[in-house]
C-alpha cells in the first residue's frame, strides 16, 4: 500500500521511501534533509487544509499538502533494507 506524507495523521511517524518528480522542489527537500530513509513525524496540521508541521532530524519544518503529496512513505518500524538511492 502506497502512502504519502499528506495522508498521515498528527502524531504518526513514517519513513521516506521516495520523492516523486524532480526539479527545484526535490532539491529543496534534499537540502532540508528529506531523503529516502529519513524518519519523519507529522506534528500537527494547520486547519482548513493548511500546511503540515513535520519533525525530522530534530527540527521542525512546515510544508504544504501539495508538496507532501509527492513524498511517498512507509511505516517507520519496517526495517529500511535497500541502500537508499532514490530515483532508481
Amino acid at each position: 500500500m502506497d502512502r504519502f506524507l499528506q495522508d498521515l495523521k498528527p502524531g504518526e511517524r513514517a519513513r521516506v521511501e521516495r520523492i516523486e518528480g524532480g526539479g527545484a522542489l526535490r532539491r529543496r527537500m534534499m537540502d532540508m534533509g528529506i531523503v529516502p530513509g529519513v524518519e519523519l513525524e507529522v506534528v500537527r496540521c494547520a486547519p482548513l487544509g493548511g500546511p503540515l508541521q513535520i519533525r525530522l532530524k530534530g527540527y521542525y519544518l512546515a510544508m504544504r499538502r501539495g508538496e507532501c503529496a509527492r513524498i511517498m512513505v512507509c511505516a517507520s518500524n519496517r526495517e529500511y533494507s535497500e541502500p537508499s538511492l532514490a530515483s532508481r
Binding site: M29, P51, Y60, L61, A62, M63, E67
Partner: peptide, 12 residues
C-alpha cells in the same frame, strides 16, 4: 516558470 514551494523551517 515554476510555482515556488512552501517548504519552510520553523526555527526554535
Amino acid at each position: 516558470k515554476e510555482r515556488s514551494a512552501f517548504v519552510m523551517e520553523l526555527p526554535l
